[in-house]
Computed example of a mutant assay.
Amino acid sequence: MTKVKQKNVLGFFKKGVHRVVIATSVAEEGLDITQCNLVIRYLHVTNEIVRLQSRGRARAENSKYFVIAEKGSPTLDKEQKNKRCEEIMNEIVPELQEYLEKPENNWEKEMLEMQKVIKDKEDQMQRERTDNMSDDACEFQCMKCSSLICLSEDIRTIEGRHHIVINIEVNGRLKLKRGKPKFFGPDEPQVGGKIFCMKSDCQNELGTLCTYKDIVFPLIRLKLVRVVNKNGDGNKYKQWKQLTCRIQELSDDKFCSLVEERKMNLLL
C-alpha cells in the first residue's frame, strides 16, 4: 500500500467512515488516532515497550487492549511477562523521576563533569602525539614484498581523513583498478576502486582511489602497508593518528600546483 493510500485509510478511520483498521506492526507506534477505543493483537507479541506503544494507539476514554492467542502458548506467556515488566516499570519510574528532580542528586552536572574530564584527557593525548611527531620522512612499504610505495611527504590529507598520494611518480609503483565511486556528499571526495602493488609476483592490495575535484589520487589504506622510520624500524598501524611522522593537509595552493603539473605531463 502506498503512503497516499495509507493516509486515506487513516483519514476515513478518523472520520468514522471506516470502523476497523487492520495493520501490520507498522501501526505499533507513530499513529495518533484519538477516536480509537480498541486494539487487538493477533498472535503478535514482542516486548514490554512495544506492548506499551500498542496500547497507546487506543487514545479514547475507557479504551481496551486485547491479545488473541492460544491458552498456554509461548505467545501468551510472553505477553504476561511483558505485563509484569510494565507494572514494575510503572512502580520504578515515578521514584526514579522524583530522585532525579531533587537538587542534591544533580546527575546531569556529574555527567557533564565526567564528559569534560574525558575530553580533556583526549585533548592532552592528542597534544602529546603532536609534540612527538617528527618532520623526518618515513617510508610507506608494501606489507607483502616490502617494496617502496611512497614517502610520508608524498601524502596529504583531505578534510583530515582522506590520505592521498600526490606524487605522480607513485603511479609507476602501483596498479590501478577503477571502480564505482562511493559518494559521501555533493562537495566531498569520491572513493572507489582499488590499488595494488605493481610487482607481478606480489599484487598486494594497498588501498583505493580518491577522486577530488576531478583529479584521481591513490588513497593509502594504512593497515595494508608498513611504515618505516629513518632508523629502519618498520611498524604496522591501524589508525593514522598513531603515526609519529607528520602528514600535512592538502592546501588550495598545493592542489592548484598539482593540477598544473598534470597538465604539463599531458602535453609532454
Rank of each mutant, 00 (worst) to 15 (best):
residue 146 S to N: 15
residue 146 S to I: 08
residue 147 S to K: 10
residue 149 I to A: 08
residue 151 L to S: 13
residue 151 L to G: 09
residue 152 S to I: 00
residue 153 E to V: 14
residue 156 R to F: 11
residue 156 R to M: 09
residue 158 I to H: 02
residue 161 R to L: 10
residue 164 I to M: 04
residue 164 I to Y: 02
residue 164 I to E: 08
residue 166 I to R: 04
residue 166 I to G: 02
residue 167 N to L: 09
residue 168 I to K: 13
residue 168 I to T: 13
residue 169 E to K: 15
residue 169 E to D: 12
residue 170 V to H: 04
residue 170 V to D: 06
residue 170 V to S: 09
residue 171 N to P: 00
residue 172 G to L: 14
residue 172 G to T: 05
residue 173 R to G: 08
residue 173 R to N: 12
residue 173 R to L: 14
residue 173 R to D: 14
residue 175 K to Q: 15
residue 176 L to C: 15
residue 176 L to Y: 08
residue 177 K to Q: 11
residue 179 G to Y: 11
residue 179 G to S: 09
residue 180 K to I: 10
residue 180 K to N: 11
residue 181 P to K: 05
residue 183 F to G: 12
residue 185 G to I: 03
residue 185 G to S: 07
residue 186 P to A: 08
residue 186 P to Q: 00
residue 188 E to S: 13
residue 188 E to D: 11
residue 188 E to M: 10
residue 189 P to E: 00
residue 189 P to G: 03
residue 189 P to Q: 02
residue 191 V to A: 06
residue 192 G to A: 02
residue 193 G to M: 12
residue 194 K to G: 06
residue 195 I to C: 01
residue 195 I to V: 12
residue 197 C to Y: 00
residue 197 C to K: 00
residue 198 M to L: 12
residue 198 M to N: 08
residue 199 K to S: 10
residue 199 K to D: 15
residue 201 D to A: 14
residue 202 C to A: 03
residue 206 L to I: 06
residue 206 L to D: 07
residue 206 L to N: 04
residue 207 G to Q: 05
residue 207 G to T: 04
residue 207 G to W: 02
residue 208 T to P: 04
residue 209 L to P: 03
residue 210 C to H: 02
residue 212 Y to A: 01
residue 214 D to W: 10
residue 215 I to A: 02
residue 215 I to K: 10
residue 219 L to K: 11
residue 220 I to C: 05
residue 220 I to H: 05
residue 220 I to G: 00
residue 221 R to Y: 15
residue 222 L to D: 05
residue 222 L to E: 05
residue 223 K to Q: 14
residue 223 K to P: 05
residue 223 K to N: 14
residue 224 L to T: 10
residue 224 L to K: 14
residue 224 L to Q: 09
residue 224 L to V: 01
residue 225 V to I: 11
residue 229 N to E: 03
residue 229 N to H: 01
residue 231 N to L: 14
residue 231 N to E: 09
residue 232 G to E: 00
residue 233 D to L: 10
residue 234 G to C: 09
residue 236 K to S: 12
residue 237 Y to S: 06
residue 239 Q to M: 09
residue 239 Q to E: 10
residue 240 W to D: 14
residue 241 K to D: 11
residue 243 L to N: 02
residue 243 L to Y: 01
residue 244 T to H: 10
residue 245 C to E: 02
residue 245 C to Q: 06
residue 247 I to M: 10
residue 248 Q to W: 13
residue 248 Q to E: 15
residue 249 E to W: 05
residue 250 L to F: 00
residue 250 L to E: 02
